[in-house]
Design a protein around this nucleic acid. Structure first.
Length: 582
DNA sequence: TCTACAGGCGCG
DNA sequence: AAAGCGCGCCTGTAGA
């Protein structure tokens, strides 16, 4: 077997594609050009999943290059996404110096406001548009610019305080970028009939010509009767609020939690009405028609779309699918789903980061909240949960805030980690996750506020405003380290699952899952990811092997991030025809 | 008539 | 039951 090049850098050159092979020391060992439309075939032959081939494709943006390869019928094992890695390295406190990399350049395009602006661009990203990023701006595509950025990134890595962690983060982030494209290509198996049945059960029959569903009409009539106004408008917040005031419900808002405080005959049907209209508008027949008309829901995932490193999504609300609709997520005939989520991912990650053996003990082999109760820290699981969430989110009032001190006494190391992160953010500093993703610095506006408050002629209001902004930022950085590190653990888990699934043979006996596309129609593949949960769509015959892969990848992720520290990440895992089963 | 924003609620 | 992190999407309204 010939030794594969370590890096294979790919870029555009007019109508052609340039591929430059680099060895371990980043010296150029080969350079070829092919017509742009021939490149995907080349990639599938030379960079595909071949045993022993450790080629890592280097490119400006996975969302541009990879869908072409998938469309050509191939999967790529590894890549280095310069856009995503640039964003990490630019901000990371683990990177020393690297002024050239940190200088504002077009490599910053799309990294900041991906979530905000991707919606308009996204629908075409995977089909037509060759150069747009999720941010809408063009990234450098020229081979010299691409090579230069790659070398800047490798130099930054080389001088980092903890290159091993950062390297792991960049690899995981890039693997995530590949997976995001694959998830879109494969789609989430979606049974139209099941979705329609749920809609009919909950909302009633669809009104004539897209009119108001019957159940919504009925419940609306009950609400209007209780409001003593047959013409009351229930869908306009200001009008509804006025109607409520007329009958003595003096709420400040029409939000569910506030309305629930009032004891009045209108409340129950009104809450029901809001629930029904929400389902109808967010995931009703129109959604089904637009997003899952033919057996698959294909959202656009946006890796790195959240500042903490979590993924965002664009189109169809992939990360907000109501649990009520979960039964519509249903394997194809002859296939099954492996659904797995991590129990209490964030507090487990916190225990490991802080090296808190007491918290790790409470978490071992059981529900972490039960473990906290067993230690005698608090008396019920519900209290343990609300206290832990309060500690990680920065609660100061209510039951949550009241319970946090007990946690602080029992788990001083873990609590010190989040408390310190809050203090740093409060002071205007930057915090960093376990693998090296750093929070953004305070905004210009934030610094202005603090500056005004420290002026000698600062008003009481100036100081109050600045203090509030300061505490808000403290809560953000407090949560950033935990949420961000949890996202890193999840990426490592995903990357492990993905790699192991690629090693599974195709399943010739299974009926082809045609809607998953040629690449995935005969092999187990990931089809959903939601922060701490994954779903694999697999030929039924491979389900047990897939379950083992999913479990084993979780153990590997724990070891990759936290070495020998004794923390475990138990999975709730089930092999099931549909994702609705508890 | 078009766009921007706020309210509200779905998910972790 | 609610306050405390991170998101995206839908609706109605306010403002240009």
């Amino acid at each position: 077997m010939t030794a594969a090049p370590r890096w294979r850098v790919v870029a555009r050159d007019g109508e052609q594609v340039v591929v430059v092979d680099l060895d371990d020391s980043r010296s150029e060992v080969a350079r070829i050009r092919v017509p742009a439309d021939a490149w995907p075939a080349l990639a599938s032959v030379e960079g595909g999943v071949a045993t022993g081939d450790t080629t890592r494709w280097v490119w400006n943006d996975t969302t541009h290059w990879y869908p072409q390869v998938l469309a050509a019928g191939a999967v790529i094992a590894r890549c280095h996404d310069l856009r995503l890695c640039h964003a990490i390295l630019r901000d990371s406190t683990m990177v020393v110096g690297a002024d050239d990399l940190r200088a504002a350049t077009s490599w910053d395009a799309g990294a900041v406001d991906a979530a905000g602006t991707s919606a308009a661009v996204a629908p075409t990203l995977f089909e037509l548009d060759a150069s747009a990023t999720p941010g809408g701006a063009a990234l450098p595509a020229d081979i010299n610019a691409v090579l230069a950025e790659f070398r800047r990134q490798q130099d930054a890595l080389g001088s980092a305080t903890d290159p091993a962690r950062l390297r792991l983060l960049l690899a995981a982030e890039s693997a995530g970028a590949l997976l995001a494209a694959e998830l879109h290509a494969a789609g989430l198996p979606w049974r139209r009939g099941i979705h329609e049945r749920i809609l009919a059960d909950v909302l009633g029959e669809r009104g004539p010509a897209g009119g108001v569903p019957t159940r919504i009409q009925e419940v609306g009539a009950v609400v209007r009767a209780a409001l003593e106004d047959p013409g009351a408008s229930l869908d306009s917040q200001p009008k509804l609020l006025r109607s409520l005031h007329r009958i003595g419900v003096m709420a400040q808002s029409t939000s569910r939690w506030e309305l629930a405080e009032y004891d009045h005959a209108v409340i129950a049907p009104l809450l029901e009405y809001k629930k029904l209209t929400r389902l109808a508008s967010a995931n009703g027949w129109a959604w089904l028609e637009e997003w899952a008309p033919a057996g698959r829901f294909r959202p656009v995932y946006v890796p790195g779309g959240v500042v903490t490193g979590r993924w965002a999504s664009s189109g169809g609300g992939a990360l907000q699918l109501p649990r009520m609709l979960r039964p519509a997520v249903h394997a194809d005939d002859g296939w099954t789903l492996v659904v797995a989520d991590v129990a209490q991912l964030e507090p487990r990650v916190l225990a490991a980061m802080a090296g808190d053996l007491q918290l790790a003990d409470a978490a071992r082999g059981r529900d972490l909240y039960d473990g906290i109760v067993s230690s005698g820290t608090v008396s019920t699981r519900a209290e343990a949960k609300v206290a832990m969430l309060g500690a990680m989110y920065g609660a100061t009032t209510g039951d949550s805030g009241r319970l946090v001190p007990a946690l602080r006494r029992a788990y001083p190391r873990a609590m010190a980690l989040v408390d310190d992160a809050a203090r740093v953010g409060d002071d205007g500093g930057v915090v960093t996750t376990w693998l090296g993703r750093s929070s953004p610095p305070p905004s210009e506006r934030w610094r202005e506020l603090q500056g005004q408050a420290s002026d000698s002629d600062a008003s009481e209001a100036d100081q109050t405003r600045a203090r509030r902004a300061s505490r808000d930022r403290g809560r953000f950085t407090r949560n950033f380290v935990v949420q961000g590190t949890a996202a890193e653990w999840a990426l490592a888990w995903l990357a492990g699952v993905r790699a192991a699934l690629q090693e599974l043979p195709e399943c010739p006996t299974a009926e082809a899952a045609v809607a998953s596309g040629a690449v995935f129609s005969r092999r187990a593949h990931l089809c959903f990811f939601l922060h701490d949960e994954i779903i694999v769509h697999t030929p039924a015959a491979h389900a047990d092997r897939v379950a083992e892969i999913v479990r084993s990848a979780a153990a590997s992720a724990a070891h990759l991030l936290f070495g020998g520290f004794p923390i475990d990440f138990p999975l709730d895992l089930r092999i099931t025809s549909d994702a609705g089963k508890a």
